[in-house]
């Protein structure tokens, strides 16, 4: 057993780098903490208000007949957007995967397109299309189509790049073209995972579809906004409970369906 002092020490450069990294994160945290005005005192002194507000959140079930139609629209927005977005994402999936793309330039273009698509959050897409197409469900669908394409094409191309390359090589050796190779060697390997991702994106889209209503993109969010503006908290409460139940139901179904796939 060598003495502690005789043990080899890691190089000084590495230790300095680690210390600097920690210091940088700490400094950024302190800065952000100050500038956001975050403090525990306000949090505690606000607790009473918080409960008083919650006290007023008694669901008014008479609002239900008003809630159903926009709620169904919310789910329909998510459903249509998931299917259209998934279909549009498929070509991008294969063009953005290094093992199935046509050439390096196309690969680069497809990946750049993906990066741009994903850098725009769903709410921003919705605000954008409400401005262009006006209020209603249509801008909501279009917004979520773009959002779906971004998410799914990224997840999909990562899945495609992780497949067993053996069958690809075999079909290339047999003289099959690129599209035939994709259909025969790639699709069977990724189909189950892709369907599972589509269900997952549908879950996300249902929740996103609620939120984008707040900027006028149709569905239950638009009603929620109206109730909030009129301080109709009992109506708001009813919406919250219903959304909670529906999202839970859809998530449960999606988790169950995905568990059946793999």
């Amino acid at each position: 057993m060598p003495e502690a002092s005789s043990l080899p020490r890691p190089p000084a450069a590495g230790r300095i780098k680690a210390a600097l990294t920690v210091a940088l994160f700490a400094a950024l945290f302190v800065l952000a903490f100050r500038q956001t005005g975050f403090n525990f005192q306000a949090l505690f002194s606000g607790t009473a208000d918080f409960f008083r507000f919650f006290g007023r959140l008694v669901p008014d079930w008479s609002a239900l007949p008003q809630i159903w139609p926009p709620l169904i629209q919310t789910i329909q927005i998510a459903y249509v957007a998931t299917i259209v977005g998934s279909l549009l994402a498929m070509p991008i999936v294969f063009l953005a995967s290094s093992n199935t793309s046509t050439d390096p330039v196309t690969l680069w273009i497809a990946r750049t397109l993906l990066t741009v698509l994903r850098s725009i959050p769903d709410l921003l897409w919705a605000a954008l299309f409400v401005a262009v197409l006006g209020l209603g469900a249509l801008p909501g669908v279009v917004a979520l189509v773009f959002f779906t394409m971004g998410v799914l094409a990224k997840l999909g191309s990562e899945t495609v790049e992780a497949i067993d390359p053996g069958p690809l090589e075999a079909l290339r050796a047999a003289g099959a073209g690129r599209n035939r190779t994709i259909v025969f060697a790639v699709v069977p390997q990724v189909a189950a995972t892709m369907v599972s991702y589509i269900l997952y994106v549908f879950e996300i889209n249902v929740r996103a579809s609620v939120v984008i209503g707040l900027v006028g993109a149709g569905g239950i969010g638009q009603l929620l906004l109206r109730y909030l503006n009129f301080f109709d908290y009992t109506g708001v409460a009813a919406i919250i409970v219903v959304i909670f139940a529906v999202v839970l139901l859809i998530d449960g179904f999606s988790v169950w369906a995905r568990s059946k796939l793999i």
Binding site: G166, A170, A176, G177, N179, V183, P188
Partner: peptide
């Protein structure tokens, strides 16, 4: 072997015919 493991044996063998097939039939 480089077979597509999740596909049937017949479909794996048919993949050998892809090179002589019009693209649309193959796809």
């Amino acid at each position: 072997f480089n077979l597509v493991k999740r596909s049937s044996v017949l479909r794996n063998v048919l993949a050998g015919r892809l090179g002589d097939l019009p693209a649309w039939r193959g796809v």
